[in-house]
Amino acid sequence: MNLPSGTEGSTESSGAGDPSYVPAGDLAQARALLDAPGAVPLGGGTDLVPSIRERLVRPRALVDLARISDLRGIAWREDGSALIGAATTLAAIASDGRMRTAFPAVVRACELVGSPALRNMGTLGGNLCQRPRCWYFRQRLPCHKHGGSHCYAYHGENEHHAILGGGPCFIVHPSDTAVALMALGATLHVTGQRTGERAIAIEDFFVLPARRIDSENVLTDGEAIRAVELPALSSGKRQAFDKVTQRGAWDFAVVSVAWARRTDGSVRLVLGGVAPIPWRVTTSIEEDVASGTLGEDDVDTLAERALHDARPLAKNGYKVDLAGALLRRAIVDLNSP
């Protein structure tokens, strides 16, 4: 977490001095600590540490949530739903035997994040709250997210940017787990000193830049994810996550897809890497996919309909083709017995 040379060791990290560090012993203490101005939750540090180095975040206090036992591990209810603590590492989720049987799409998404070492450190809550990878944003150009009035990607190097839901900012959300969790209809349990406990459907957690520019989700100051709930309705074999990357490993998704046919027969279909939020396709398409046997033409038509609103930028038109291919494959798989 060293600052760039020149400022190292000085009191210049946030204008308010170097951040303090406090390990929270329990949830009540965590809520109180996070309520202080400039306090941010710390999990494995894999996104926060470089974000502080790049001065995307200038925290006054790091509140370590990783030691709170209530936030670690997976609890199972009698009905088969699961409650994953926000500080559970991606490696722990991926290696959990019951998770592998009940929610394989989430396990696959966890397995495809970064590298083994990053998965040993990175937590589920942190993966959902990681900041975008847009190179202009990371370089701290004065873009919309940094309080400016310009999107450098819009007329610039935009091969990795959004084809859906963009404007005024064209980031794509980098989380793989978010895409899988949305396909399973997860609920996020959020906690805060002033806001209390909130249960938020994952579709309502992520927000488009047109609605909120300074953050990718609805969390307010002092709030943190406590747990992620996976409904029993979404458990079983009829689900998958897949992602296409430039490299064969350790890469963010160029485009990803997650789908689930739930035990009530309903279908959920979500794309990643195409929009500033995990992009759930229109309900009518999910209903048509769920409704029955589809011919080859139907598969093509449904995939085209799902991408009807896609507006690629100058250099990312390939994402429309890629997303179409992943959607067609997902729809075929959803309709195989």
Partner: peptide
């Protein structure tokens, strides 16, 4: 890369206070 409690981690990202 070093090994913390049996698991490989990237020490360049590992917050030093969490080593306790």
């Amino acid at each position: 890369t070093v090994v913390v409690d049996g698991r490989a981690v990237n020490s360049c990202l590992f917050p030093a206070p969490e080593i306790d």
